[in-house]
Design a protein around this nucleic acid. Structure first.
Lengths: 341, 341
DNA sequence: CTGTTAGCGCTTTCAG
DNA sequence: CTGAAAGCGCTAACAG
């Protein structure tokens, strides 16, 4: 069945045409210094034989693979799969291919993937950090191989790296101001793990907005979850048993918000009346939900991905000049889901 | 910043040690015929210099890339991202890397990706077809390059290919028998595009089960959607305006079922009483839904992915013998979501 | 306009 | 036990 047809090479073309391989190579590349006659003869024979350049040989020779690696926590989160689409589109436009690796929020896995990608000689990397990652040595080591890295969404707390991230400060301000304008004074936060920069930023912004609006800050209104089911349940429970209960809660993401909503319903609280939940958007089917969060901040994952890819491509082209570091902030937009209140 | 440290090669090690490259190569590979002394000297210097083999050079030499390509319609569907995880796990265990490409259900895109992967010299491919794909020439062409292909989930209607798919006949039987046992006699089908094998199988099984249960077949109870929003809306509308109305509806997937459910509610039908919806599972957050489908058939995407990968790896190892074709059917299981009825 | 030659890094006969 | 040499397919500097 499988005929061991070894594929034709420029060498073979050269022999058949009684010319040199370099001429063939040049002809195939439409080099200006090749005579039209030979060019055509070569082209034609190449077509006849079904010649296709061996990309691996070319990669080897050029020291370039036209591949970019993408490392992220999980494809299952719609946020990331949308980001990938953004990356892919930009990559394709620039003739690059994309390798994807999932860290599943495990640092060791993340390191493994990075190593694998370095071994495969990707020309550059786009990374969203695992939840566990606190040390960035495995990324810094890539400099040695001249592999540029652009981080997105979950970015390191370093200034000497390239990154694209959601503007948490601004997004959170929008949310809080929105709630305050609606009359809420007692606003809770269901925050993420304290190690994540975004969590810190959320807390800081919270304080800042409260001060600006002359609302006294009550840190018992800020609960953290490591995003596991149990931890989230505990946080939600604590939050809803506070006295007095918050009238609005900002959750780190839609899933956490939904957990809060379920719990509130169990307590027979009327949604968007006794208590309002808002969050940062990351689930697909809000429209099918009975009680969606009242509003969420859209984080534009496709845009984050495509911007990261654009920056990376720029870096790969001017590998020489690493003058300054990109630090892009993506502005979120408030989207209202529910009606009522 | 970026030091042009070119990476050490075996040649360099050889020179420094005043031995030949072949000896270095063998020493590094722990070849039995190399003296312990030299072996150790080489190993040590290699460590000192931070030597790492140039994989691209090796790929080039070995004509093998240890990469497998995965082509599927969309990562955003949880079904596929879970399948990927299955593929990745098996691949990693066998030292393979995974390239992913999304066809976005576009044949042209699918062809492009296949070409790109062929150019990158992947050692094998795992594919779930785009909705549009009716002609399989671009896959058949891969034989020429000795790239084996394993299809999964959306597989071609050919017998001379390797494939892993959900057992639609069995899954549909389970569903229908379940409904019939619950007393339903007038059962509708919201089917997928007629070109998809699975749709045909669903219809055939429907007829078969009806006959077996001595229920007269009414083909007006079978509606098709091409899965676009409009088409689904139309199909749902037709289905629910049939007289008499079906008391149960089997939908091709959860999204279609949810559309049906929404529409039924608009008509003030009581769910799981006036009308019951069931479907084939593919959404993540059933537990958060107000009115989930009453039951769905779990299709085990992770398992489909990992089995496809295992078959592929087997094929890549014995590229010689393409004796017979794998044709695996995965059994679904009925999962009840709602209570009541 | 075309050919010769060297070489990318590594593996692998074939000879010692 | 070790070395020399060829070669994978392609590009490009150099020389006509």
């Amino acid at each position: 069945m499988a005929e061991e047809h070894k594929l034709p090479t420029i060498k073979e073309i050269a022999q058949r045409l009684n010319i040199s391989v370099s001429t063939v190579s040049r002809a195939l590349h439409d080099h200006p210094s090749i005579g039209l006659r030979t060019k055509m003869r070569v082209q034609q024979l190449a077509d006849e034989l079904g010649y296709e350049p061996n990309k691996i040989a070319i990669f080897f020779k050029q020291r370039k693979t036209y591949a970019i690696g993408v490392v992220l926590p999980s494809l299952i989160e719609e946020f990331f799969s949308k980001a990938i689409s953004g990356i892919e589109d930009v990559a394709r436009k620039n003739k690059y291919h994309v390798f994807i690796g999932q860290s599943h929020d495990d640092v060791e896995m993340e390191k493994e993937i990075i190593t694998a990608m370095k071994d495969q000689h990707v020309d550059g990397l786009i990374v969203s950090l695992s939840k566990q990652t606190k040390n960035y040595d495995h990324f810094m080591a890539l400099e040695k191989y001249n592999i540029p890295v652009v981080f997105f969404d979950r970015v390191p707390s370093l200034s000497n790296v390239h990154k694209v991230a959601f503007d948490m400060v601004n997004g959170t301000k929008q949310m809080l101001e929105f709630l305050i304008k609606k009359g809420h004074r007692r606003i809770g936060i269901l925050n993420g793990p304290e190690e994540m920069i975004s969590s810190k930023e959320r807390t800081e912004t919270y304080k800042q907005v409260m001060i600006k609006n002359r609302i006294k800050i009550d840190m018992s209104l800020v609960e953290s979850t490591d995003l596991s089911l149990e931890s989230t349940a505990t946080a939600v429970e604590k939050m809803l048993s506070l006295k007095p209960r918050p009238t609005a809660v900002v959750a780190i993401n839609d899933y956490v918000a939904l957990d809060g909503i379920r719990h509130a319903k169990k307590l027979n609280l009327e949604l968007n009346k006794d208590i309002t939940f808002v969050s940062y958007a990351n689930i697909p089917i809000t429209s099918f939900l009975q009680d969606p969060p009242f509003a969420s901040v859209e984080q534009y994952p496709y845009k984050q991905g495509s911007m990261a890819a654009e920056i990376l491509i720029e870096l790969m082209n001017n590998s020489s000049t690493s003058e300054s570091f990109h630090n892009i902030l993506i502005n979120g937009d408030l989207v209202i889901h529910a009606t009522g209140e």
